[in-house]
Amino acid sequence: MANMLTAIAKGLGTTLRVMFKPKVTLEYPEVKKPRSQRFRGRHELRIYENGLEMCVGCELCQVACPAHAITVIAAENDPNNPRSPGERYGYKYQVDLLRCIFCGYCEEACPTECLHLTQEFELAAFSREALVYQKEQLLARAPSHFKVPENVYPPYTGRKVLVAE
């Protein structure tokens, strides 16, 4: 009998002790666990300060990807309505998040610092197709602080004709 009472008291003691300790449980999804600064989540394509896409469609991310998760198809900019600085832009950009292993090689390969992996990790969906992210889903909503580098991409003014002197 006495044994039983001791056990109860011990148990309640633990409860009492834990009650005054800091909480471990998070109210997910309202509250999210802090992630490391170098956390590698969903991909994002940055845009320059002036609103142009930073992606030039060079496909280096595609070739760096060990899981073959990325597909890029480039196209020529319309000089009247350029999507990116320079002549070339990423016309199609797909990331198959089901294949992606979040290794971050693509981010490392990107020569324009456009592609980066965000903190976002809630990547569940009801179909496979929905997890193949298209360019529209990957483009950043807000401009970044990056400026169009000088001397690299002169403004593309369209094709020139060879003029007779």
Partner: peptide, 18 residues
């Protein structure tokens, strides 16, 4: 110093961009 700038994307002929 800044680089020398020259014409880009010139249509040299029907099939060639210079």
């Amino acid at each position: 110093d800044p680089k020398e700038h020259k014409p880009k994307a010139v249509d040299l002929g029907p099939f060639i961009v210079l």
